[in-house]
């Protein structure tokens, strides 16, 4: 059981914080909104899937401050996409490996090509 912490120490002043802390968070967010607009899933299905990730993370003792929120968001999106049959887990891990290799094969300063 985590001791309740005060919001002032847990969550310092957040006025003026950036919308996204890292570019991948913006991409994951926008990918979700775009896929929903293309009717790949309903928003209700999305909210349910994200809730499940958040509930499981809380039960597993995840950070209280929400710092892993977009990581949970990404896991939810991967799961929903595979449940919907739009991609398989193997496909996603293969593409991740291909992107890694594409970075490693690109001289520093050159644009990285899609694998």
């Amino acid at each position: 059981m985590t001791e309740p912490q005060s919001f002032s120490e847990l969550l310092p002043n957040t006025v003026g914080e950036p919308t996204f802390n890292e570019p991948w968070q913006a991409q994951a967010f926008a990918l979700t909104v775009t896929a929903h607009k293309q009717d790949l899933f309903t928003w209700d299905e999305w909210a349910t899937c994200l809730s499940e990730e958040i509930t499981a993370d809380k039960a597993a003792g995840g950070p209280e401050d929400g710092s892993n929120y977009y990581a949970l968001w990404l896991s939810a999106l991967e799961r929903l996409i595979t449940v919907k049959g739009a991609a398989t887990e193997e496909e996603l891990s293969g593409l991740k490996q291909a992107w890694t290799e594409s970075y490693l094969a690109t001289p520093h300063g050159q644009p990285v090509q899609e694998p």
């Binding site: 991948w24 991409q27 990404l74 996409i81 739009a86 991609a87």
Partner: peptide, 10 residues
């Protein structure tokens, strides 16, 4: 990299 993989697949 996981986001890139998803984006590429979709």
């Amino acid at each position: 990299l996981r986001v890139k993989a998803l984006e590429t697949a979709l």
